[in-house]
């Protein structure tokens, strides 16, 4: 297996604290293309691998504004411009009656954008990923915690990176092939 066929080097840990400590040292050693894989959301881990800002909240806000403004515009357009009906002498643009649909569509737009925004930004859905070639990676959804230094990292060097990860006290360090 030559270096170009390697996706990265993966270290396996027994607990969340050990993983966060190891991930911090990996970052301190200057590695940039690092990811961690855990069975649940580990507090402090995203910061440890250098991921601070996700844009999900911004996307959700945009979705909410689009949903609310869109349905209000539709109500206004249909009731004032396109087909005005005199309903008991109420104004054509009777905004209090337009609020329920506006509120619901604000929530709907925000929720749809939050869900699909999160999926797309996370690279999901995906049928295959090289990390699944790793040994025992199925335990990442059960009780094991992994950190991976990818071969795309400029400082990646297979033997040295492996030795470095072993020095962090990992239970096991393995090379992840692309196929």
């Amino acid at each position: 297996m030559s270096d170009t066929e390697v996706y990265g080097v993966l270290a396996e840990f027994e607990d969340a604290d050990a993983l966060v400590a190891a991930a911090t040292r990996v970052r301190d050693a200057g590695y940039a293309r690092v990811d961690a894989y855990t069975p649940f959301s580990v507090p402090g881990l995203p910061e440890a691998i250098g991921f601070r800002r996700d844009r999900v909240a911004l996307v959700t806000l945009i979705g909410g504004i689009l949903g609310g403004a869109g349905i209000y515009f539709l109500q206004w357009f249909s009731a004032v411009v396109n087909y005005p009906i005199n309903s008991g002498g109420r104004p054509f643009n009777s905004w209090p009656a337009f609020i329920p649909a506006t509120f619901e569509c604000t929530v709907l737009g925000a929720a749809l954008f939050a869900f699909f925004g999160y999926l797309i930004m996370s690279g999901l859905p995906k049928l295959h990923h090289p990390i699944f070639n790793a040994k025992e990676f199925d335990l990442s959804t059960r009780n094991r915690f992994f950190v991976c230094i990818e071969s795309a990292d400029p400082r990646f060097e297979r033997a040295a990176t492996t030795r470095f990860l072993e020095s962090l006290g990992a239970m096991r360090v393995s090379v992840v092939p692309f196929s």
């Binding site: 881990l45 996700d54 619901e104 996370s122 999901l124």
Partner: peptide, 27 residues
Amino acid sequence: LGWRGEARQWKRFDTAYLLMAGLATPL
């Protein structure tokens, strides 16, 4: 959907989940 439990996925998951909860409550 190919979930890998990446730290980045979890972080976005947590944000999106909390926001959805905040939307679902007034809903």
